[in-house]
Computed example of a mutant assay.
Amino acid sequence: MHWNVGRVRITRAVEMETVGSTRFILPLATNEEIRKLPWLIPQFATEEGRLKMSIHSFLVETPSRRIIVDTGLGNDKQGRNVPSWNNRKHPFLDMLTAAGFPPDSIDTVLCTHLHVDHVGWNTKLVDGKWVPTFANARYVFGRGEYEHWRDHSDAPDKLAVFDDSVKPITDAGKSELVASDARLSDEITLIPTPGHSPGHMSVHIKSDGKEALLTGDVAHHPCQMAHLDWSSTADSNPQQSAETRRELFSRFADTPTLVIGGHFSAGYIKRDGDAFRFVALNP
């Protein structure tokens, strides 16, 4: 699945898709409540009210850069708090290569934040050692995000993620720490969107008068556009995440900006009373 934004091309590479089994991340999104939002069906939820979500990466091609935004779960990882995320054996890199994106062709890896499902393919296991998967790339991390997890990854699951998917990048001299509002290229600027994590960033793309927004995990699902206060259990600051949602969605609502979520596909944000709804762009 891909979209063109001026001279920028965005391709989504899906590692995992789920239907239902999402209450652990959005406990207020019950089947009954989701059925009250018919605009979610069928693109983002089933008729029964079960959420549709995915774990995916974005390949962003500009005239001068070849970027992967967020890198999913990865293979061979241990210590994850979701059993099915441990010791995975997924042909994700083969899929990228078949789609025209062999890992060695990527020059930039950009992580919107450093949670488990956004950094996994940063590294791969080679002869018992974690090495950078994208050997020719610079890895761009938000400075505040990186320093937070470097200094506060004391919980076993957080420590495992940092040690196998983030620290090896820094040890290899391939990380670049940037401000959360940094400009990465003529077309790409970061937007500070804290709340889900302390240094979370979204990605604003502008080219030839067209715009797109990669939200990261500002919202895990479009239902959070209607219910801004439905914070994820993974949010480090639920109140701040709700404030960030209102601020970001207000900025891009009722504009032609193509919006693509960290766990859902593309559409446009529309104002709906005191909140918002999401109009899907069918592939």
Rank of each mutant, 00 (worst) to 15 (best):
T233N: 11
P256W: 04
T112I: 01
I55F: 06
M1Y: 10
V131Y: 08
M16P: 11
H56N: 15
N136E: 09
G100A: 10
K270P: 02
A98W: 02
D171K: 09
N282G: 13
A99H: 05
T108G: 11
N282Y: 09
S232P: 03
R271E: 07
L258S: 04
L281C: 15
E17Q: 13
K158R: 13
V119T: 10
P198K: 01
F141N: 04
H148A: 14
R12E: 15
R246L: 08
T170E: 14
W121T: 03
V82T: 09
P91F: 07
G74Y: 02
D151V: 06
W130V: 12
L228G: 05
K167V: 07
S21F: 10
N122S: 11
D157A: 11
W121P: 01
A266P: 04
D272C: 13
T257L: 03
P238E: 15
I34T: 03
L26F: 06
T30M: 05
K174T: 06
A212Q: 04
T123M: 08
R7W: 00
D274W: 04
T62W: 01
A98V: 06
T123E: 14
A219F: 00
L248V: 07
S105C: 13
K167M: 12
D163H: 09
A99L: 12
L184R: 00
I169M: 06
G49E: 09
D164H: 03
R35I: 04
N81G: 12
V178H: 03
P42A: 09
A275G: 11
A280Y: 10
Q224F: 03
V131T: 10
D104W: 09
G142L: 06
S241D: 14
L96H: 07
A253N: 12
